[in-house]
Design a protein around this nucleic acid. Structure first.
Length: 466
RNA sequence: GGAGCCAUCGCCAAGUUGGUAAGGCCGUAGAUUGCAAAUCUGCUAUUCACCAGUUCGAGUCUGGUUGGCUCCUCCA
């Protein structure tokens, strides 16, 4: 397995802390609103990572957090009158359901900031005791970036003197312009806050990840976890700050490898809530099947930006359709053993920093050669069984191709229409027997009008939703 | 202002240590079909934004130019 490490900016062989194991922490969403396609892509990218490592026989432990204390959530509380808990649990539930529709496996650990307050307080207290952090007059606690000689090595976003260039305004009580809040003291009696030894308030954004990692992973003398992941926008300042506070509090590096996924763009621009160009997952799932969306969003390498277009999505679906047509052709039956050459080619591709393009090419070649052989010898039973096993392997590794193939092509067709289709096909078959082609073509046109395309095979006439 | 990333066929998109351009869509010629659809076969980039350099050899390395995107503010 090779992984591109965004800190060293190069592809590295994956050598985990513990032989045969992989610990992964991915930054999850702040739960104050619906997830958009960008969240989906990030989630999908690390799902692919986890599945690939598992297929390579690593014992994977994956954590993905929910940030459930945050300014935006508090703002929503003020706007809606709902409790923070009501809001966050609603969006967490939604998020999990939508990701499940995309075939994303649940993380082993799903920590929430509200459930990690003790770990957060402990870490902040430790940093204060070490004088790596300080409390200002308002009760806010800041991390002193000057105490960390390695600050800037994660994002390479160093720059010592051009602080005035920074777009971040900073308060005069900060020791250094780059110092960031570990703890935000509560401002009024209605503010949502939690009690600590230093001040009542709530955690800053960065500290929760560091604290959660310490709470849930043991690591070794050098690193807490193997891989830390998230969107490319988190590299700075979020991950830089996480790394700094962990390094100072724990005395070693936070993560051995850092991985960052590229953005989903709309018309060449990053999709984000602040730009107002978000395509929400819930809306996408109303129009497209989760599996099709998964295939599409995963079809471009995770580090590249992804320009979303419905037209490309349709093109992408055609490719998935081909896999299901083959599956239809070899079904029903019992799977035998996966083809070793095929399996190796897929694992080699995915083991190379998740090279999905090569993996999809390997699959397309398998589909073509299998169809070719089946054209010559339609009754090749052992090939059919092997193909079934190959497709099962694809489903395990990449998360698509697992559906029953006939139902895949019938998504969105209700029972009444199915009966109607069956009737028309039967009538057409009879017309064909009588060589009444005028009538059979007319019946086909009727089916086409219903959005159904048909194909005559030795096994009879099959249909698909166009 | 500072820090990065990217630029490969009409479209999407691979291409680790430099060695002579995967795959998909579209198009096209054929096989198959009553005709289609599905499936298969052939064809479809002497060329990798542009310029210069290193090298026996560069899409891959170096420098520069142009264009696009991102981060430095919440952000996947």
């Amino acid at each position: 397995m090779h992984i591109y490490d965004s800190v060293q900016k190069t592809k590295l062989p994956f050598g985990p802390i513990r032989e045969g194991e992989a610990s992964i922490y991915v930054c999850g969403p702040t739960v104050y609103d619906d997830a958009h396609l960008g969240h989906a892509r990030s989630s999908l990218a690390f799902d692919l990572l986890s599945r690939t490592l598992k297929a390579l026989n690593y014992k994977v432990t994956m954590a993905k957090n929910f940030t459930d204390i945050d300014d935006k959530i508090i703002k929503k509380v003020e706007e809606t009158g709902q409790s923070m808990e009501e809001i966050t649990s609603f969006y967490i539930d939604r998020y999990l359901k939508e990701m499940a529709a995309l075939g994303v496996e649940r993380a082993d650990i799903e920590p929430k900031a509200t459930e990690s307050l003790q770990a957060i307080e402990n870490m902040i207290q430790k940093l204060i005791d070490q004088d790596n952090a300080y409390v200002i007059s308002t009760g806010d606690v800041y991390f002193d970036t000057s105490k960390d000689s390695h600050y800037g090595e994660i994002s390479h976003q160093v720059g010592e003197d051009e602080d005035n260039q920074s777009r971040v305004a900073h308060t005069s009580e900060k020791r250094n312009p780059k110092d960031f809040a570990l703890w935000k003291a509560c401002k009024g009696k209605d503010d949502i806050c939690f009690d600590t030894a230093f001040s009542p308030g709530r955690p800053g954004w960065h500290i929760e990840c560091s604290a959660m990692i310490e709470e849930h992973f043991s690591g070794n003398d050098e690193y807490s976890i193997d891989i830390h992941g998230g969107g490319a926008d988190l590299l700075f300042p979020h991950h830089e700050n996480e790394a700094a506070q962990s390094r100072c509090a724990i005395g070693h590096e936070l993560s051995k490898y850092w991985m960052h996924n590229g953005f989903v763009q709309i018309d060449g621009e990053k999709m984000s809530k602040s730009l107002g160009n978000s395509f929400f997952l819930k809306d996408a799932l109303k129009i497209y099947d989760g599996e099709v969306l998964r295939y599409y969003l995963n079809s471009v390498h995770y580090r590249n930006d992804f320009n979303f277009s419905e037209e490309e999505l349709q093109t992408s679906k055609k490719r998935l359709d081909k896999l299901y047509r083959l599956k239809k052709r070899v079904s029903p039956g019992k799977a035998s053993a996966v083809n070793k050459t095929f399996k190796k080619a897929l694992l080699d591709a995915m083991g190379d920093d998740l090279n999905i393009s090569t993996a999809l090419a390997v699959i397309d070649e398998m589909i073509a050669s299998t169809n070719d052989t089946l054209d010559t010898n339609p009754k090749n039973k052992s090939l059919k069984k092997e193909t079934l096993a190959n497709i099962t392997f694809i489903d395990t590794l990449l998360g698509f191709g697992g559906k029953e193939p006939f139902s895949y092509f019938q998504i969105g067709v209700d029972e009444a229409l199915k009966a109607e289709i069956a009737k028309l096909i039967e009538a057409r078959t009879n017309a064909k027997k009588e060589k009444n082609f005028e009538r059979s073509d007319a019946l086909r046109d009727e089916l086409t009008a219903l959005g159904i395309s048909i194909m005559d095979t030795p096994e009879g006439t099959l249909w698909e939703k166009a």
